[in-house]
Design a protein around this nucleic acid. Structure first.
Lengths: 340, 340
DNA sequence: CGTCAACATGTTATCGTCAACATCGCGATG
DNA sequence: CATCGCGATGTTGACGATAACATGTTGACG
């Protein structure tokens, strides 16, 4: 199953073209084109006849030809991270739905952050004449790789708050502070943090904000525990949480669930001995044991806004400044006041 | 943000074409084409010169033109369900990765099962001249809608064991029996089941097999609890589980997690009072409380096999019969022997 | 030394659509 | 009644690539 080159190609007989429809309707192909594109100034009767011919022949417009002629494809390219995490996946679905509303479809490709991988993804998508590019840029390096693109509008998604003019993101700093303020206000003073994949923008922002928060409140900086977004990593990190820590801020929900499992194995009760806050609010978090306090990110809103901006850009409107999307805290049973 | 018709279209100046490259390299455009397509019989020096020109101009092949000329697009159309569940999403990622290996990319669109929605999806994808179609057909009705398609190879994915010649699926019957046999062999005799979305093939197969199993073993048919795959629904169904039931088979993991939460709220201990088995083996299941016994479905394998079949079909090879993919049981702490 | 293969390359037609311009018919108008 | 204008349609030439065929240059060989 390697990439064989020319491939036997059976080239099945193509379907009917505009000419076939035109012939059948007794008009010129251009009239068919006009009907298809809802141009004014077609006699109702003619339109009727053309539409009948289209139906009878099962004609379907050839978008390759259309794209060639117009330079537009009605497809937006989406570059996704290679691993299916909750955030990007949810956002992708939201994008797909919103895009469909305005007549676009997403063409997906995945890429890691190295420039070779990004380069391939870009070549592929631009070669397809996508009308715009949505980049789920989880790593600062991709910004550089994509910055050179001027052919089409580019929008970054899920990049934290950086690159604000051309990006849609949930405000990571605000979200992190919601979580930490909550813990602090419950009386907790010994905090630890489990991070997401090192280097990814969101993981970095949550981590940086965590450390800032400690400093602001004069709290001790215990070692940051490295995670990778997975429940497995959360579990492993949970085994390493220091004695005496009463507040654990975890960079996403699956890791939080893993960490809680580890803590309980160690005989620590959540939230009796230690409070835990996650991030994302995945649907299962409400039913975790105990119910997970977490920061809700509205990925549907991210997707919707992304498409709306992309659509505007395609039509040549320069968008104003973009407000980050505000997350909110969902308090459940994994957090409790510090015991005296 | 409605689907405006012609749209202002700014038509940004297109990039360089083959002719530009040819001019720069001092050859004909056809020679450029030959270099691009790795044709034999090009003098190394000429090839060198062309490649230099390509690099210097930042030339990128126009796939719309290529697709028009060849009738192939190197894109495979994927029709997904509208809601992002674990199975389809995981499979999508697997497909994307596998497809990339053989030089294809997925063009995604979602559709519900009604024929209008499917029709639109098909029009869109076939209009794009996709080389093949992968349909995640979770509902029997879509089979009919897609059956009319003869333009390109079509493959069904995740349809349970039906439609075997043209589909790739995890063996739902076998998976369900793994779960039930496990519970039965632990001594349980009072079973209940929480279903997935009514009508979806997989939900239906799990449910039917569950009922069959009860009959085979002469067990009482307690009411089947209707779910919709979501943890919320699992929670609600969990509140309805009958007194005296000691074995709960849930059609997926998120619902199982929700159900366990409900059971514990009711004062029932899992697995002490009631054993629970899920389906899917989502990564968080290992760290649920208690660790969830579940049926693992290898979606990566599904995606891989799907692409391999699609690739074969595109190249005109008729595939032999397709074996379903075997699931396996992962035993964790949510199941225990029946107490005397 | 003429001929013919083989290699390397150029030329022309074609894919299906849209865009720009041309035409045709007909009622209104001066 | 010639002409203008406009509504409705037809004609021609891109778009950027591939495919099929044509051409020109070598070198081997009788």
């Amino acid at each position: 199953m390697r990439p064989e080159r020319p491939a036997p190609l059976a080239k099945q007989g193509r379907g009917p073209s505009m000419h076939d429809v035109a012939a059948r309707a007794g008009v010129s192909h251009q009239t068919v084109s006009r009907v298809l594109n809802d141009f004014p100034g077609i006699r109702p009767e003619t339109r009727e006849r053309v539409q009948a011919a289209i139906r009878e022949l099962g004609y379907r417009r050839n978008m390759a030809a259309r794209a060639l002629a117009t330079g537009r494809s009605e497809v937006i390219g989406v570059i996704m991270p290679e691993v299916p995490h909750f955030g990007p996946t949810s956002t992708l679905y939201a994008i797909e739905h919103a895009a469909k509303q305005v007549g676009f479809k997403p063409l997906i490709t995945t890429a890691s952050w190295d420039s070779e991988s990004m380069g391939e993804a870009l070549d592929f998508l631009l070669g397809r004449a996508v009308d715009a590019l949505v980049v789920m840029a989880q790593h600062p390096d991709v910004l550089a790789a994509v910055d050179a693109i001027t052919d089409v509008p580019v929008l970054f998604v899920l990049t934290g708050n950086s690159h604000a003019e051309r990006s849609v993101a949930v405000d990571q700093v605000a979200g992190t502070r919601l979580a930490l303020d909550h813990l602090y206000s419950l009386g907790h003073r010994r905090f630890q943090h489990i991070t997401g994949i090192a280097g990814l923008t969101e993981a970095q922002l949550r981590r940086d904000t965590f450390l800032e928060f400690l400093d602001e409140h004069g709290l001790e900086r215990l070692p940051v525990l490295e995670g990778d977004w997975s429940a497995d990593a959360g579990y492993r990190a949970g085994l390493e949480v220091e004695e005496g820590v009463t507040a654990l801020f975890v960079a996403n929900d699956p890791m939080a669930i893993g960490a809680i499992h580890a803590l309980e194995e160690r005989g620590l009760s959540v939230p009796r001995d230690i409070s835990v806050v996650g991030f994302d609010d995945v649907p299962e978090s409400a039913y975790a044991h105990p119910g997970l306090t977490t920061v809700h990110q509205d990925f549907a809103a991210v997707g919707l806004r992304a498409v709306s901006l992309v659509f505007a850009a395609i039509n040549g409107k320069e968008p104003g400044p973009v407000e980050p999307i505000e997350p909110w805290l969902v308090v459940r049973d994994s957090t409790a006041p510090l015991r005296a």
